[in-house]
């Protein structure tokens, strides 16, 4: 069913901070929720992304309903579904993964999601840390070999490139630039052209004496 929430800043408005409570920062925002109001998925804004999000959410609800009666295969399917939808707290990911038999690819996804969580935790403290310290912490993560998933890469690598450029760390800048090239290799979005030019400039500045 369809729920419409309008933030009006009128004094009598119930749930005035519902957008932020559900983890969003801007308008418009969309998500699937269960009947309790728990967010199950935040789909992208294409029709296909909506369809995929709806299918994932329905599948998730069915798996959760199995509870203790779920088979090991169903428990694994539930964990991976929740992981893909970012519904597992970062602190719980490894503990849940350790109870399951995962393929190497699935273990890789688990590792990426843990890194994603660590990256998002730093970014969410951005205001508290200050921009320079936030960028430095992200750069340190990159230097330490941390690699985010494709979902977080577009936020992570530009931040790292930005820091590396200011710090004249050519090697790190090249690493960030290469990661961005790879991430967006098949993306035909024309709006990317400006971003790519700015990344190239940051790399050039990092290498300049």
């Amino acid at each position: 069913m369809l729920f419409l929430h309008n933030t009006s800043r009128v004094e009598d408005e119930p749930y005035p901070t519902l957008l932020q409570d559900k983890g969003f920062r801007g308008f418009p925002s969309i998500c699937f929720m269960d009947a309790e109001g728990n967010v199950l998925a935040k789909p992208g804004r294409s029709v296909q992304a909506f369809r995929d999000g709806l299918a994932s959410t329905k599948s998730l609800v069915v798996l959760r309903q199995k509870g203790d009666k779920a088979t090991p295969a169903e428990q694994k399917e539930l964990f991976l579904a929740e992981l893909k939808l970012d519904l597992v707290a970062v602190a719980d990911i490894q503990a849940r993964a350790d109870k399951l038999t995962l393929t190497d690819a699935e273990k890789g996804m688990v590792a990426s999601k843990i890194v994603d969580g660590e990256i998002m935790a730093v970014m969410q403290k951005g205001r508290e840390l200050g921009q320079d310290e936030m960028l430095k912490q992200l750069a340190d993560m990159a230097k330490g070999g941390k690699t985010p998933s494709d979902a977080v890469a577009p936020n992570f690598w530009p931040a790292v490139l930005n820091w590396a450029s200011k710090a004249k760390d050519a090697a790190l800048a090249q690493k960030a630039f290469d990661a961005l090239e790879k991430r967006f290799a098949n993306d035909k979005n024309p709006n990317l052209d400006r971003a790519k030019k700015s990344w190239a400039k940051l790399l050039e500045d990092a290498k300049a004496k």
Partner: peptide
Amino acid sequence: AKKENKLMFAYFTRS
């Protein structure tokens, strides 16, 4: 949603 056993699709906007 509870009564009909359905999921909710939520759209957040502002005025």
